[in-house]
């Protein structure tokens, strides 16, 4: 609505003035909107300083050897070659990260929607309470260390105590020091904490579905809740579903803090090592910044690539 006022004046200008006036016009546009740029500038300066420039810098640094002390030395693709050909631990981390993403991503996404959908059937007061119960873990700070007590390796651990009493096991199991269990435990705790922003978005989306659509659907022959879900609810929630997918995918690739808290850093035989913990290892302990940047770039491509692909798929749903 703002741009319209500028148009008639430029149209009236003679032809030969058109070329130089393109710049003049842009300058005028920039000047006319100066208040908006000023309003946005504090946020945007910080956003570029701490998000955009670091991504670019990280990409550039990944072609250098850099240890914070000496001047960066250009080494081309060496970091990437080392990453994929010479670093067995990275391959374990990559395998674990993909496993986490493949399991926790879809499971948590479906769980977010399923529970939001069931909760939506409840009366408002119970709904508010159940929302708190399911959303609570994701905002409970770092209380996930409680799981340490549950999976504690001695007989004081709740799970061990419980299983011992039932007679299922005869001696306590070292849950978090055992390669066979530790990955599964990290996944369970990750899932426990994963009903976050997208869960709220789904709750909100479900509450805002046009009720007349549902009534009309019933008249048109929708017979049960599953048909209602498929033909009315899901299509009308598409924007929220896309938003939720972005949130869950990004989170499912970023598993690190929970792995470190539960399995330790490094974990037994790197059983719960992820790309992010590998990045932390080189970035904050060994200070091999160039190599760490290569890991960060791989992580960036993994996350954004998966997100873009999923967006494409979701866009096709219901077309």
């Amino acid at each position: 609505m703002q741009t319209d006022s500028a148009k008639p004046q430029t149209m009236a200008l003679p032809m030969q003035l058109n070329k130089p006036s393109r710049w003049a016009q842009l300058k005028k546009e920039l000047y006319r909107n100066r208040h908006y740029y000023i309003l946005m500038s504090p946020y945007m300066i910080l956003f570029f300083l701490f998000t955009v420039i670091p991504v670019v810098l990280s990409f550039l640094l990944s072609f250098f050897y850099f240890n914070l002390l000496e001047f960066p030395r250009f080494i081309g693709w060496d970091n990437y070659a080392r990453l994929f050909l010479n670093d067995d631990v990275f391959l374990i981390a990559l395998k674990n990260t993909l496993l986490f993403a493949v399991i926790t991503g879809p499971v948590s996404y479906i769980a977010c929607f399923l529970f939001a959908w069931i909760i939506n059937e409840l009366s408002p007061k119970i709904r508010a309470f159940m929302t708190l119960v399911f959303y609570g873990p994701s905002i409970s700070g770092n209380v996930f260390f409680i799981w340490l007590v549950i999976f504690s390796g001695d007989s004081y651990g709740y799970l061990n105590g419980f299983l011992l009493r039932l007679g299922i096991i005869l001696e306590p199991i070292q849950w978090l020091q055992n390669e066979d269990y530790v990955l599964a435990i990290v996944i369970i705790v990750q899932l426990w904490m994963s009903l976050g922003t997208s869960f709220l978005a789904f709750i909100a989306g479900l509450q805002n579905i046009d009720q007349t659509l549902i009534e009309a659907g019933a008249v048109d022959g929708i017979k049960n809740r599953w048909q209602e879900l498929w033909y009315i609810v899901l299509p009308s929630m598409k924007p929220q579903l896309m938003f939720g997918a972005v949130m869950q995918i990004t989170a499912s690739f970023a598993v690190a803090e929970i792995s470190i808290a539960l399995a330790g850093f490094p974990s037994v035989n790197y059983a719960a090592h992820t790309v992010v913990t590998h990045l932390m290892d080189f970035g904050t302990i060994r200070f091999e910044m160039g190599y760490a940047s290569a890991i960060a770039t791989v992580l960036f491509l993994l996350m954004v690539g998966t997100n873009k692909m999923t967006q494409k798929l979701l866009r096709k749903v219901g077309e």
Partner: peptide, 24 residues
Amino acid sequence: ALFSIVVLSLMFSPHVTAVPNYMV
């Protein structure tokens, strides 16, 4: 353009920028 950069940044976690952030 600015808004699409913001949306793009929803698609990766802050871990990606940890190393350069430390330098900044």
